[in-house]
Design a protein around this nucleic acid. Structure first.
Lengths: 331, 331
DNA sequence: GTGAAAGCGCTAACAT
DNA sequence: ATGTTAGCGCTTTCAC
């Protein structure tokens, strides 16, 4: 037999009907022990593997969830992904992953392709989906979780934390330490970075201070952190006593650059970051940062997909995972 | 109409037959311009999205490829993934991604689940698949690419580089610089790490030197690099003049730790790593490392899946992407 | 607890 | 260039 074995083939070998094999595989309890054993033998013997396309067509359950993240190269999303997979794989859920490169339009296109796979749920990053995307999602009638940010009006469910509040709190932390000339170094300037910036600006304004900002739409990197620091310093005649980097990559770059420029950290310049990457705790001086439970966020998102009713009736399907300012030597 | 629109619904609206709609969508050139326009209207009007399960069942083409990597948290694989997606998304190929946590057994299980989705191709990491996995793969009769390592006898196709050679060459590089008491710091000790170690041992043996090794099965991390360095030093009475870390995370950790211990790098101790992460080039002193084209590897793997005949007849379906030793101040 | 029949939505193969 | 027919492999429904 050269073609791939199907249910009938297995059924023939086991001496039962196809539907019995189907049941033995997907709902073993509904089949007598004897037949179950026979079927198992036959499956092994034939090397049968269920055709998920046929199964999905007949049952309208695809066994797949869709995930769209803005970037595969940003380590931050990998930890979220790791959390997603941690929950999904044991549930025998396959994950269809898409990378929209921070573009809502690409996200919209990906969405259309994803939806054609009839996913049983969807995890999307952020809240800036296009109108058309939202329409697609509405029609899909599947559970949807928006992650990373917090929103009052999720498409369906939402898990994340407030980037505004985190930016605000971190700035207050710096101000409480006595820093006054604080600059925000930002790269990419995606919605979440902008919210952090907004929090920063608010806190500075509240304190009657000028919010200094050095930003670029370029993708973030360690190297860029060094460049932004130089720009910020030259743009402000070196009159800075702290920089609040929109993420730890920039912060590391700024720290390395400061060392090259013989600027003492935190003596002459305080540096803080965002995300609390492993390196931040281990460099010298260790970098003050905002810790976020990314792994947890991924896990929670999948749990929400698995039991949507439960979560929708619990805080309106919105979960705030919060954040944590980790004070270290750099500030 | 509350249920999701299908081809017939669209056909009715457009006043054509279902198959025409199907063709207009998947092979526009085969349909007259007039009908194509009509169909497009009808699709938009109904909000139709193709049911990929039905399509896959009828055509036995799923539009999906499967990818299994050993770890989602290891940044190295993310860059490979980024390359994979870079090629896959424009080809409208969906990627089913699995994380086998460095376990061939988990890989085998994932494989079974993946295969039930009838992927059109498979990308696997490394060459240590279980026997049963190999049997499954043989029966699948789809193009398969093993990535990262190089092997003489791939299951189907192979793209990667020789970790043994890289370990060997890096060691020779150190020896040429005059270092003699060189220790290999290894974590995780997955097959590729072991090959690097084998290359190191060979080069040391060739030079008549004792290959010092400090290793642990623990997952690699920056922190662990510091710990391994301490162990290596205390295990060898501080009599080391260089450490060859199995990756850059360890190398960074070793460097940070050395600084804390007031050990001058490279004056008292040379440090080199593997993978050439961004940080390695930017820390002080910059870390000597082995550069590998991971992004390229991912892209190549997908290309091989797309045109298997072409690549199979070209070097037996094996592509050596090589590596590049990047000498920097740390050694 | 098991089976027979029907049909999920699409496309391949064969008309026209 | 367009339509008709049949069937992909499974599960749902209903019968026993």
């Amino acid at each position: 037999m050269s073609r791939k074995p199907n249910l009938k083939d297995v059924a023939k070998v086991a001496g039962v009907s196809a539907i019995t094999v189907s049941r033995a595989l997907s709902d073993p309890d509904k089949v007598s022990e004897k037949l179950r054993a026979k079927v198992e033998m036959a499956v092994r013997q034939t090397g049968y593997i269920r055709n998920q396309a046929a199964s999905a067509l007949a049952s309208s359950r695809s066994g797949v969830i869709g995930v769209i993240i803005p970037s595969l190269s940003n380590i931050v999303f990998n930890e979220v992904l790791a959390g997603i997979y941690e929950m999904a794989q044991p549930s025998k859920l396959q994950v269809l992953l898409g990378d929209c490169h921070y573009s809502p339009l690409e996200e919209e296109k990906l969405l259309a392709t994803l939806l054609s796979q009839s996913p049983e749920g969807l995890i999307l990053t952020g809240t800036d989906q296009t109108d058309h995307a939202r329409r697609l999602l509405q029609n899909a009638e599947i559970p949807i979780v928006q992650i990373m940010e917090l929103t009052d009006s999720p498409i369906d469910m939402n898990v994340g934390f407030s980037h505004f509040q985190a930016g605000f709190d971190m700035t207050r932390y710096l101000l409480a330490k006595g820093y006054r000339r604080v600059a925000f170094l930002g790269a990419r300037m995606d919605p979440r970075t902008q919210q952090r910036l907004a929090g920063f600006s608010q806190a500075m304004a509240d304190a009657g201070l000028e919010p200094l900002v050095q930003s670029t739409p370029q993708a973030s990197s360690i190297k860029l952190g060094g460049q932004l620091l130089r720009s910020a310093l030259s743009g402000n005649q070196g009159q800075l006593d702290a920089v609040f980097c929109c993420n730890d990559d920039l912060a590391l770059g700024a720290l390395f650059e400061a060392r090259r420029m013989n600027i003492n950290v935190p003596g002459q310049l305080a540096i803080c970051g965002f995300n609390d990457l492993e390196a931040s705790a281990l460099v010298e001086p260790a970098i003050t940062s905002v810790a976020v439970s990314r792994f947890e966020m991924g896990k929670t998102a999948v749990q929400m997909l698995l039991k949507p009713e439960q979560y929708r009736h619990q805080g309106g399907g919105i979960i705030d995972l919060g954040f944590n300012i980790v004070g270290r030597a750099s500030a």
